[in-house]
């Protein structure tokens, strides 16, 4: 018995080592964001900051604008994804349309479309209708990832709800919207939260739309700001690492606070036709 316990704790040690190796790049970003700029040029960079400092976070004064821009865009993208995706998922999951399989296949196909294929047409169109350098333009473009994803996740969950629950609501006089709002949506709450979080995260991490749809510098999402930072001030590693750490926060919060939703989101792409 004791040897079995030893073995299990041995496994934990190995697992922690694997974790350390795989998360090393991110760990280093976070740790080094607290070390004085001069230490970045030490002949032997050290992982653990030799001198602890918050100086690098002075960069916040210049990054606060991009931070809020990204927060706004990501939140609105999640809202759009849910508003468009929830009714669609409900319809596809519970109405017995014969062509549901075809509709689901079309939604699956959107996952295949290379974003670079949409980049030029949306750039030209947004340029014509004045959506370049605008928050609504970026929200629309970023929702293109969130909407199909939301539908794929929620359709799978909503079709798992027994028909009898819906029927009971109908017998009580609830229409379809009311049934969705007060019965089905609460019952699939965790999937809805997962879809919303992932839609937020897609937009938060977006780089391609930030790069393509902003031409005059009036709107700079955090990802673009960090990219320019790395390009222009590559010597200011302290500021870069502090900005990168800030950009890491939502993913870390998601991991800590919403751990159980993550596998739902991760495997959603694998939901079969």
């Amino acid at each position: 018995m004791p040897s079995g316990t030893m073995f299990r704790y041995g496994q934990t040690l190995i697992a922690l080592a694997i974790l350390g190796v795989l998360l090393f790049p991110l760990l280093w970003v976070v740790l080094s964001s607290f070390q004085p700029a001069a230490d970045f040029y030490a002949p032997e960079p050290s992982l653990i900051p030799r001198n602890f400092t918050f100086d690098n976070y002075d960069v916040l004064s210049s990054q606060i604008g991009p931070l809020f821009t990204t927060l706004l865009i990501a939140t609105l993208s999640a809202v759009v994804s849910l508003l468009v995706g929830i009714p669609a998922a409900y319809a596809l999951a519970v109405f017995k349309w014969r062509w549901v399989a075809i509709a689901m296949f079309l939604i699956l196909i959107t996952q295949v479309v290379p974003t670079v294929m949409l980049a030029t047409p949306l750039f030209l169109t947004f340029s014509d209708i004045g959506l370049l350098n605008s928050v609504p333009g970026l929200v629309l473009a970023n929702s293109a990832a969130g909407v199909p994803f939301t539908i794929l996740v929620l359709t799978a969950f909503m079709s798992g709800i027994p028909d009898s629950i819906r029927e009971a609501a109908h017998l009580d006089g609830a229409g379809e919207w009311r049934t969705l709002y007060s019965i089905i949506a609460p019952a699939t709450r965790s999937a809805i939260v997962a879809a919303g979080l992932f839609s937020f995260l897609f937009a938060w991490g977006d780089f391609l739309w930030a790069l393509t749809l902003n031409t005059d510098g009036s709107i700079t999402p955090l990802s673009l700001s960090l990219f320019q930072f790395v390009g222009h001030f590559q010597t200011d590693w302290g500021g870069i690492m502090a900005t990168a750490t800030i950009a890491l926060v939502p993913a870390m919060l998601l991991l800590v606070g919403a751990q159980r939703y993550i596998s739902v989101g991760l495997t959603a792409g694998a939901v079969k036709e």
């Binding site: 790049p25 938060w204 991490g205 960090l226 990168a244 890491l248 993913a251």
Partner: peptide, 9 residues
Amino acid sequence: LPWLVPSIV
């Protein structure tokens, strides 16, 4: 985590 963080990070 590596899968969740923004690609730029």
